[in-house]
Amino acid sequence: MRKLSIVLALMLAIAPVSVFAESISGEIKPSPWSGDWWSRKKGFLVKGWKGHSPSPFEKYDSYVKSVTGRNPGAHSWESNTNNHHYNPNAEPWEGHCNGWSGAAVLTKEPKITRNRGGIAFETADQKALLSEQYMNCYCNFYGNRYWGNDNEDMDDIYPDEFHRLLIDNIASGKTAMVCDIEADRMVWNYPLYKFESSWSTGWFDDHKLKVKTTCYYVNDDVPPEYLGTKWFAVNYTYNLYVDDNGNVISGEWTGDSKKNHPDFVWIPTGDARVPSNSTLENPCLDPKFVKDICEGPANKQNGRAAAPSSRNPDDLLVEAGLDPNELF
């Protein structure tokens, strides 16, 4: 017993800094919504699914035609296998996960059926249109996408950068982020909206923080009609290195996270028009009609797409809670 006390006393005496633990967490509310990822192979967008017919794009074309007198051709474009949006021979993982991710972060979840010109757009139809519209979107991008080339750094995105993004965006309540959760060549985009992180210093190395972080991702493995946020959690471990002043200066993935960590992170900032010669997004889908379908009252008989807003830039500052008179 006496020997044990001496050993413990010695250990405490030689430890440069006592072990301590700290933690931080964050959650974005309202959280991004779950929705189908609209597999290219299944083609729900153009074929509908069991108990759901006509398909979302057939409804869209009918509604726009009822307003403008002209079929916009969204269903026809989406069905054309040359455009690679519907293809019975597509890989089973190919779909619209990036469009769904962008829409789930930037738009409110459609929770009610909206009748437009006598056509009932169920929540699944609305989510389908939003997921297509956000296939092209502006975003802030972090890390580098891994393409499988020898000269690429598989450790990227680095954990110090990832940790900083979690705190800067989620702990601060700013915005959810989207992660490609596979470090390898495949891309699986999921919105990350919540995390819990804790760390401690080592006995003999107070320049190293051993971090455990649990990230909560929004799941797209749900039926099209699903409402709310279904999530799954992934644990990551990494070391952060700090300088003499306690500033984080670098990091390294550890344990299973060496191979299982996000590849890149992107934060959507707004919808983008379809670039010429691009087939990433259906060019026959007009955002102002999608907005008309997915926002506003449950019933509108004489469908008219909302006129472009004529708001002053200062109005957006006011909406954000800022006072232009004080600022300027």
Binding site: L106, T107, N169, K174, T269, G270, L317, E319, A320
Partner: peptide, 29 residues
């Protein structure tokens, strides 16, 4: 100032105003 699914929000950046370091636009388009 940026849009979110629940409307516009704003965030003040942490700026070391004693340092004349370059300003890099990050987290904004």
């Amino acid at each position: 100032v940026f849009p979110t699914s629940s409307g516009m929000k704003y965030k003040e950046r942490d700026i070391n105003n004693q340092s004349a370091e370059p300003l890099v636009a990050e987290g904004t388009p």
